[in-house]
Design a protein around this nucleic acid. Structure first.
Length: 497
DNA sequence: ATAGGGTTAG
């Protein structure tokens, strides 16, 4: 099928070697030189973030001035990153600094702030920041519009995202091929591929679209499992004299796996080899992962071995793929063997590796060992992320070890990794399993705390906690929570959610 | 932050 596509259009114009990239004269494994990152020094931004989080809105200016921070763009950005899951607090901090007598926000800080505001669907504030950038003559930057478009698209407002792109020049930012490709990608990644397709058809001539544009569109169709359309994109690409790249081929290959078309994937892979195309680490990682999640663990392992035999060095992602496959379809023990093997070969595990391994351990009930790995992460310059904590907390709760789950949660609060919405949801749900009235009081407290930190619980969560408290006869606390829910409701209506 | 591979829920 693709054999036709790969060869036919080219035979009409030139020889078929144009379909695949030329062989490079030399080759270096991309991930051969991974090193252990230095462990981060104790930071000012953690202090500032904690202060912002814990101070009352009215006392924030005073609290911050008591500490006489030396504000720099880097410091401000790091504080904003730490407050990523605490949008209202982050914005309060950012706006407070806007009134600082001498410090002026950098473009990248504005971009962070725009991202945070738009994620809260507070588009007015986001646009106000865009205007402010223009007034200060430090933008608005193309990145600011990329962020806005992405937030509109992920918020279900794809048309607004397109409008952001179409109108950016009116806000003082030039449109170019980069911004065109960005909006195509944003639409594709949010699965509005049809919309991206029509935008592409309309503007591809005006922006002189390139292989990147085609690769984005091909990937879009693959994401929604419409591989035939992706092949169509590839065909048009070739007809217009744009040479497909390794990215194009790897995209298509992944597309076949997504549709569970293992035979087609395998044949496509063979075709790539036959064409003397430099199969790279990404190709192999796609194969290892694809076969593995389809349950073909042996084939997955065989591809991995073949890769090594050909002299290609597996990357962290390749190992992560294999480790995940073994955890899910084989055994954690075998996954751990691969983990040790990668460390032995000098390939440095990253956060993803640890999260995969820890999840695998939790899943097979080895909680102690999971905690061991949480400590061991630091050897490789990794710190447990919210996801890491959430996994372990969840499994503790599922095992009925609520105290241990809560203990870990306390650790997060004190340390540098702040809980997010998932953490609260996991814990609150867990408080219903024992049907004890103390547990429901904890659930209520968690609910209050999460609202105080700017997370909006679902109506379902409120109702559940309220019903539970009433059933247990704790009317006073239930009323307190009800009042808080009403306050949340007002905020939501104000934000037109 | 212009494109392809690895974390996400029983």
């Amino acid at each position: 099928m693709f054999n036709q596509l790969l060869v036919k259009p080219v035979q009409r114009t030139c020889n078929s070697s144009h379909l695949f990239p030329p062989k490079p004269r030399f080759w270096l494994p991309r991930n051969a030189l991974t090193t252990v990152p230095e462990s981060p020094p104790v930071s000012e931004d953690a202090t500032a973030a904690k202060l912002v989080l814990e101070s009352d809105p009215s006392s924030l200016p005073e609290t911050l001035s008591n500490h006489s921070f030396q504000w720099t763009p880097q410091l401000v950005n790091n504080v904003l990153k730490r407050l990523w899951n605490h949008g209202p607090k982050a914005l309060q901090f950012f706006k407070h600094l806007e009134r600082h007598p001498t410090y002026i926000h950098s473009p990248s800080s504005f971009e962070h702030a725009i991202d945070i505001a738009a994620r809260l669907r507070d588009y007015n504030t986001a646009w106000a920041f865009v205007g402010r950038m223009r007034a200060l003559r430090i933008g608005p930057t193309p990145r600011a519009f990329a962020i806005l478009a992405e937030r509109y698209a992920t918020g279900g407002k794809a048309h607004r995202a397109v409008k952001v792109f179409l109108s950016m020049h009116e806000h003082g930012c030039h449109q170019d091929l980069n911004s065109f490709n960005t909006i195509l990608d944003v639409l594709c990644k949010t699965r509005r591929v049809e919309m991206a397709h029509s935008l592409f058809k309309t503007f591809k001539g005006r922006f002189r679209c390139d292989s990147v544009s085609y690769n984005i569109m091909a990937n879009g169709w693959c994401l929604i499992k419409r591989t035939p359309m992706a092949l169509q994109v590839m065909k048009e690409m070739v007809e217009r004299g744009i040479t497909p790249t390794m990215v194009t081929y790897n995209t298509l290959l992944k597309g076949y796996f997504r549709c569970n078309q293992l035979r087609e994937a395998w044949e496509f892979f063979l075709e790539m080899k036959k064409r003397k195309c430099e199969i790279d680490v990404v190709t192999y990682t796609t194969m290892v992962h694809g076969f593995g999640v389809a349950g073909e663990v042996k084939r997955s392992k065989r591809v991995f071995d073949a890769m090594v035999k050909e002299g290609l060095v597996p990357s962290v992602a390749t190992y992560n793929a294999l480790i995940q496959v073994l955890c899910k379809k084989d055994s954690v023990q075998n996954a751990l063997l691969v983990f040790e093997e990668m460390v032995g070969k000098g390939c440095v595990p990253n956060l993803t590796t640890y999260n995969v391994v820890i999840r695998g351990l939790c899943h097979s009930g080895e909680m102690e060992k999971a905690l061991e790995f949480m400590k061991r992460m630091e050897e490789h310059g990794c710190r447990p992320s919210v996801q890491t904590y959430n996994v372990v907390v969840r499994y503790y709760c599922d095992d009925g070890e609520l105290e241990k789950g809560l203990e870990l949660f306390e650790k997060m609060g004190n340390g540098t990794c702040l809980p997010n919405l998932d953490t609260y949801n996991i814990l609150i749900s867990a408080m219903f399993v024992r049907k004890k009235s103390e547990d429901l009081v904890v659930a209520g407290k968690l609910l209050m705390e999460m609202v105080g930190r700017g997370f909006l619980p679902r109506k379902f969560t409120f109702n559940r906690v309220l019903n539970g408290l009433v059933l247990m006869g704790n009317r006073d606390f239930a009323n307190e929570i009800l009042r808080m829910q009403n306050r949340c409701g007002r905020v939501l209506r104000h934000m037109k959610l």
